[in-house]
Structures are given as structure tokens and as C-alpha cells.
Design a protein around this nucleic acid. Sequence first.
RNA 1: GCCGGGGUGGCGGAAUUGGCAGACGCGUCGGACUUAAAAUCCGAUGGCCUUUUGGCCGUGCGGGUUCGAGUCCCGCCCCCGGCACCA
Length: 854
Amino acid sequence: MARSKPVYDFKTIEKKWNKYWLDNKLYKAIDFDKRPKYYVLVEFPYPSAAGLHMGHCRNYTAFDAYARYFRMKGYNVLYPMGWDAFGLPLYNYAIKVGKDPHDASEENIRNFKKQLIKLGGSFDWDREINTTDPEYYKWTQWIFVQFYNHWYDPEYPRKDGGKGKARHIDELPIPEEVKKKGPKAIKDYQDKFRLAYKAKMPVFYCPSCKMGVANEEVEADGTHERCHNPVEVRELEQWMLRITAYADRLIEDLDLVDYSESIKQAQINWIGRKYGALVNFKIDGTDDVLEVYTTRPDTIFGVTFVVVAPDSEFVSKYQDKFAEPEKVKAYVKEALVKQATESMDRSKSGVFTGMYAIHPITKEKVPIYIADFVVSDYGTGAVMGVPAHDQRDYEFAKEHNLPIKWVVKPRDGEWNEDKAYESRDGVVINSDFLNGLGVKEAIQKAIEYFTEHKIGKMHKAYHLRDWVFSRQHYWGEPTPMVYCEKCGWNPVPVDELPVKLPRLSDYRMAEDGTSPLQRAEEWKKTTCPVCGGPAERETDVMPNWAGSNWYYLRYLDPHNKEKLVDYNKAEYWMPVDLYDGGAEHNTMHLLYSRFVYKFLYDIGVVPVPEPYQRRITHGLVLGPDGKKMSKSRGNVINPDEVVDQFGADVVRTYVMFMGPHDATLPWSDEAMMGVKRFLDRIWVYASSAIDSGFNIRGVEKENQELKIDLNELAKKVGDDISKVKFNTAIAKIMEFFNKYEKIPPSRENLEILLKILAPFAPFITEELWHRIGNKESIHITRWPEYDPGLAKQKEVEVVVQVNGKVRGKVPVRPGADQEEVLKKALEDEKIRRYIEDGYRKVVYVQDKVLNIVT
RNA sequence: GCCGGGGUGGCGGAAUUGGCAGACGCGUCGGACUUAAAAUCCGAUGGCCUUUUGGCCGUGCGGGUUCGAGUCCCGCCCCCGGCACCA
């Protein structure tokens, strides 16, 4: 890129004002201030590399402009910053550079912070947080202990009028027969209800990362989201969080927030609630029942077989009774691997067990199959096969020569027997007491019948599963739990938190995939909080999400030693007014953090039911070649370099100008140069006005026009910023400036222009503001007030159409009526030419358009 | 397959929600300044026709509603993101 002497010395200017702003704590957010509060939050960065990337740069400067605007509008703005530094990426980075992750993260953070300051970020640094700081993760651990100490009562009335609340485990009713068996039995009973519980269960395990992986982190093709290597299924003892208890509230409370429809949909789909029924099929030759889940109980008379998941309880319990146990065993083994890895296989494979289930109504015997299309963790892990009305069942029946019974027919005419009839518009047939009913009515009636005859009941099923909350590596919050041979698992007493992550001489994973904490004998050894005997600490750490789920609350009270957050401060600041983040976090992070928040709400830590009032998604910045920036492609634009070369104001204004905030856009050096030219011209314009002492003799009239347009500009730019439309806000300033660049401004008008530009280019506007002679910072002045009287002084142009085609324009005062506009239009020779033969009709839209129809 | 979001100049993108399509920026072309170049400034820039005045065509494709459609309705095509054997 060609270089020339800069028009102004941005380096000196930026350094000077940054120092001034920091020294004076200009952007301090004040608790309990009288002004209305405004909480702007952008997802905090993960410092897994040495410096910021352009995407960070874009998001943080865009909302910096947003925060600056709201401050100028008179709000007490909280725009905080912190660091999400636990987790695997940083752990891997530390190993790569051969440093203890404590030190590696500290170094990265130092640089991130330096860069953010350089960019002019108006953060309140007194509220800086870091998830790896023991003073911070003390509270991450505290939350975990609270989860452990609570259970969910779905019927408990909440103070907000809703139903369902987390209650202390001591309030859990214990059945008499359990009580009789003593304290051990009571604890075992309680453990089944805790919101944090340990479960031995099949979980995904990534052999490459050497860690357990949450279901949600596994891609559709069976690979790990982070490293894209295939995962395996393993049995591991894991801490789990019972998010499913909050599923209904997480759906219902979406009514309280202003997320876009697509984000709400993403949340709803992820939870995946479906209403259906449980139906009991007796297992022939036993006293057991097989419980199946169905969303179509109306087709109960169409059942011709039953299918269970390969890893269901049924399989392990009855494997000795199967007709061909060896064949079944082989199939199950194969099916489990297939289920965990490739889910795309559409062949309807399955194996007959040799056992039969008894239809709960007709008492017919139907065969029981094992098939990999049934998954154990949805519904009951068993389904009823209705080949006539489910395409997948249809294919399975064809494959295994099973009968097909038609029990629903289309309202008008015949059906096609080559495929299942899945429509819900049909009428039920061949179904005893359901005959003649529509599908909806039949579903209702069937469930009533099941309930009455005790063969089934209504049931909700969720796609959402409980959350695996253990990670088998080093760089995370230690799980504050202790195991004692005598007393089992118990939480570390709250007054002993935090359980600090120890510094180790070797912080790397062992060859066998075990965590270094398992080797930290000194650290592991502790005493049981219940009996005082010897005990061992949990060596699994928490997932990366643990610290990032609630961080926005700590900004409100970052130095509180007694509490996670002072209730009154939370009451003042919550909810977050605007939360910006990546699209990839619209499901998991958003849902999990809402869940954690709702739990904190239940236990009285926070005042309002939802944490984020409005959610905005940001796009990525691609390389100049339109591809994702990466070192291997060599298309990385380093923020530090461009800021050094062109100044923070140019980079800031450009990243906001490049396109809509939620769009993924390619970087363009050339387009950035356009912004640089614009700011250079502003500098020259303002400087020469200042140097000439605002001599506007002879241009008073133009200055009045300028003032009228400026009045409108301030409003439009402000509206655009509120709507997160930074690109058009800047375009409007450019448009204005193109029009008036030749008119020397009055001091008043120049000051207004600088204020409008200040959120985008805080450094040069501050410098020019002071050169004018102002003593206070421009960033704490008030945004120009809109004057509707001034707006009225401006003429408007009404477009004149003939038969819908534009044929001319007439200038009129705003609010002119049809008669006046028409008269003026008819005076126009060019327009008259098109209506020589007269006209039939006139349509007028005030101040906009006049359409003459001939 | 399902859910969500889109398709507008050479490029990134604008269009008070039914009212001048292409704001703003880039690029390109022409000009000024310069020995020359860069930088800067001025002008032009959707396509086609026309000497000019001007005319016609244009927002993925095909229909429709309307005085008027990028925007609304019906039927297609394509692209991006998320989820997917969910019973």
C-alpha cells in the first residue's frame, strides 16, 4: 500500500487522549446513579492467541460506538470487559508455547487489553474480570455447590406467579421407608434429585483431545466440534447439571425477551419439546412392561411391531432370553458404534429378539426388534412400529417383512400403499372406539383411554439432555467436591472456597489421557467435610462454559468478597440491555447461561427472570480473498498493524462502515482507504475553520441550511446507532459532508458535526473539540437535541408520476396538500406533456409522491 | 428432510416497510495539479437506443394484486447458516 505523510499526527493524538481518558476514568459506570442505566455487553474474548483478531476489533469497536452514543444521550452506561481464559484452547496454546497456562493466559490478556485500549474502547476497567482469577472462580465453584445443594420442585409456586423452583435439598420430602433405612439411604435418595449429580453414563469421548465431550459439542457427522476428529462412546463418571428441569421455563420465558424470531426458534428447537404419550406393552412371558413413547397415540391400532434402542435396559436385561443371542450381541456392538459416529445411514437395519410384546388393547402379540434408528436418550428408548403411518417404520416393515395395518385414511378418497400416510388431516379407521375421529381428537381420546385403563399417559419429551459438566484435563476450575470412603461425595464448605488450581511442575496430560491433577498427590489429599477423615478431591475440572455462563453478573460487583453480586446492584443494572455475540452461541451458550441465571434467580441471587433483554448476532471478518482468515492461507489482517499505519479512528470507522453488523464480510484495504480519506477531509475542514477563527461572513445563509440538515443528521445517526446500523449511520455523515464540505461552518455547527462523529472516531473528534477551545471531553457532552421546528423550515421534493412513472419533481413546504402540489405539478411543462388528454384520477401521499392517472 | 436467513451494478452494500431502485464507499474511465509518478482535487459511471432534448429495459425465474411492487400474494430455481433415523 502506498504511503504518504499523514494529514494529522494520529499517533500523538491517540496516545494523548487515551492517557487522559484512563487517568480521568471518563467511562466509569456508576452504581445507583440517578441517570437511567444502560448495560451493553459483548461476549468477552477468549485469549487463546497472542493478540486480537479483526473480528474482535469489529465487535468491540461497534458496541463502543453504541456505548458512547448512549452515554451522550444521558445514560449511565456499563460497557465492561473481561477474559474467558479457562478451557482447552488456551491449555493447548500453553503446551504449544511451552508455558504454564497461568503465565500464557496472563501474557495474552495483557496484550489483548493493550490492544483494546489502543482502539479507543471506552470500557470501565475498574470492573475487569478474569475467569481464571481465584477471586472470580470462587464464585463459579460456589454456583456449582449451590446446584449440588438444590433440587427442582416443578410444582412449587414462585413469587413471580410461575410454577417450579429450585429448593434446598433439605426441603426434599423423604419417603418414610427411606427414612427408616438411615442417613446413608437418605443421602442416596437425595442424590437422585440434586441439580448437580454424578452419573456413570455413556458419554462421548474424544481420543484426540483426550477428554469427555458434551453431546452438544459433537458434530452431526460424529466428530468433535473443536478438533474434528471422530469421537468414541465411553462409560465415565461425570458430574451432570440437570438443565432438563428448566426446559419448559427456558421456552416459556422467551416471551419476556426481545430476541429475533430466528434466535428464539433456535432455542426452542434445541430444547425440542414434543407432546405425546407413554404406552405400556407387556413383555410376553414376563411380568415386565416395555414403555414406549409416541407422538401418534391415535395410531395405536396400527402397531405391528415394537423396536428398542441397542443400548436400552431391555437389551441388557433379556439378552439371555433372545432367540439368537450371539447374532443380537454382534448387531448391538456394531449399532452402538454406528450411532455414535455416522448417523446418516438410512438402511433400516435391525434384529429380531425372538421375544414378543402384548398389544395393550387388542392383546395381539407383536415382535420386539432391536434397531439402531432408535436412540436410548430420547423418549423411553423404545418405539411402537406403525408402518402405515410413519415412513421410517414403513421402510423397516418392508425390510423385515412385517405386516402393515392402515388405521388412518385421507378425508377424501384412497391412499397410496407405496408409502406411509403421515398426514394429520385424516380420519381414523379400523380402530374400535377411535373410528371416525379426526387425528387430533383421536390423540386426545386415546390418551384418555390409556389413562383410564392404566396402560399409558400423556408425556412430554425433550431433545435437550442434561449437561455433562466434567472435563478430564488441567486448565479449568477445580470441581469443589470431595470423596470420602465413608461419606461419599460432599461439597467443599463454602467458606473454604475457592479450591485453587495448583501450579504444577508438569501441567501436561499423561500419555494415558489422565489429567495432571490426578498426579497432584499433595493437592488431592484433604479431609472429609462431614466426618473429618481422610478424603480426596475431585480431579475433574469444569468445562469452559462454567465461567462464561455468569460473567456478566460479576461485572456488576467485581470486588465483592462476600457475595457473587450484591442484590441491589444486580437490581439496578439487570437485565443486560443489549447482548452481542456470535451466531454459534445462539443455541448453547445462550441457553446454558439462561439456565444458570434462572437457577440463581430461584435461589434469590438475582432479581429478574431473564438475563438478556435483547440479543444481537455479529458477523465475521473474512480475509481480503473472501475466505476465513487463517495463518496457513496467509490472508490474516493484523489489527495492530493497520492501527499503527492508519490510526484507530480509521480502523474503527471502517469496520463499522464495511456492512451490516450481522453480515460476514471480506476485509478490503481499498475500502478502508476511502474511510481514511473521509476522516482526513474532516480534519482539514475543521482545522481550517478553527484556524480562520470561524469566519463565516457571507455564508450565513448556507450555515442556516447546514444547521437544518445537521439537526436532521443527528437524529438519523442516533436512530441508526440504536438500531445497530452503524454502516448507514456513517454513510449518512459522509453524505452530509459531501454536500457541505465547501461551506465554512460556524463554531456551533462544527461542534454539532464533531459530536455526531464522536462515537465512531473518538480521537480526532476529541482533539478538534479541544482545539476549538473546549475544556471538557467531547465524550461526556450531550448528543445534539433534535429541533422539530428546524425540520419544518426545510422544503421537501414531491415526486410527480404519471401512470406510475416518474415525470418530474416539485419542491413544496412540508405538509402541503394535494391541491397545492397538483397545481404546481401542472405548471410544469414537461409533466403537462404526458397528460394532454386530461386525467381520471390523482393519488397523493403527503410529502412523498403525486401520481396522476390518465 | 426440517427450521432459520438470503438472492439488488464490476465489487461491499442502501432503500421511513408499498412511493425517485442503486444512498455511501470501493473500483473503473476522463480531467486538473506535477518534468513524471504518488497523494490530492474536479467530473462521469446499471444496461440498451439517441447528435441533443429524451426514450425503453432493469432488484434470481414465471404469474398475480395495486394508481404504483426490490418490498405484498401464488408457483418455481439457487445460495448460506443451524439441526437431523427424535418415534
